[in-house]
Write a protein that binds this DNA or RNA. Structure first.
Lengths: 148, 148
DNA sequence: ATAGTAATTTACGTTTACGTAAACGTAAAT
DNA sequence: ATTTACGTTTACGTAAACGTAAATTACTAT
């Protein structure tokens, strides 16, 4: 149990280059073991990498990602530290929820465009059917109403 | 109705520099009118800028943002174009929904850490109450240093 | 022993998204 | 008339996040 991974294994699994993984190491975000000169990645390193890449997909900078990851293994010594940690988590939560709102707004916009699109398509369809009268006042319906 | 804006007005409203707004123009993402040499931004430009910045917050590249914005004023001439547009919208939707999943996963992780945090806090609280036994097996968690 | 494969370090290059400074125009305010 | 505020273009600079190439080392197979 608890298998380990080579750099190339991880790179392939996550679709990044070896260079990228080494870069994260120089940035202190990964700390693989060494077997002689070779890097040995343990499951925790894999989890880290997964977190890093997830953060990247969210458009976070490596610095921001680092801050999140640091939350995972912050010093949980004293009550004060813990409260501080909870505050940080709260702050990160807020950021993420803002992002979700942005996404939802964008999705709504896209749905809007798509709806208008489909409406126009229906209209074109109708025009095509009534071939005899090509210019039959094709004033379409009001563009409103999102059906999904 | 339909007021216009100066570059500085927009910059201040959205918390970016004038330079940034001009940069978006050189990238063809904004096309303000000119009054002599001065740039005059119309409501549509403002909407554009809002979309651009929203995209940025989502971590999209300017190229990706451009692709989304282009969806808004794509050529809606023929049925084929419209179907293509619908496909592109669909694709963008998928991307965004993937991002939402990433966000939800991260939020879940954070909640997890927060829960453990609060649990530990409760434990510390209990320890503090039983003041008589100051060294009651408070074996702490591993910590790890980040080198940079 | 040699060839091949995969890993390593070192170091310079590249792209994106602006920042920053210089040098200048225009219009209102003092 | 000139300071102040705001705008302009032009152009070089920069930080982040890697890419890419070179030179080297190490294991693996034949």
């Amino acid at each position: 149990m608890s298998r380990t991974f080579s750099i190339t294994e991880l790179a392939q699994e996550f679709g990044v280059t070896n260079r990228t993984i080494r870069f994260y190491e120089t940035e202190g975000m990964l700390t693989p073991l060494r077997e002689g000169q070779r890097r040995i990645y343990r499951p925790r390193d894999r989890v880290r990498l997964k977190l890093i890449l997830r953060g990247k997909r969210l458009g976070l900078s490596l610095q921001e990602i680092r801050e999140i990851i640091d939350l995972y293994d912050a010093d949980k010594g004293e009550a004060g530290q813990l409260q501080l940690l909870l505050d940080k988590i709260e702050s990160r939560r807020d950021d993420l929820e803002n992002k979700r709102r942005d996404i939802d707004a964008t999705l709504a916009d896209l749905d809007d465009v798509a709806a208008k699109c489909r409406e126009r398509l229906r209209q074109l369809d109708l025009d095509e059917v009534s071939q005899i009268a090509p210019d039959t006042g094709s004033q379409s319906l009001k563009s409103k109403g999102v059906a999904k």
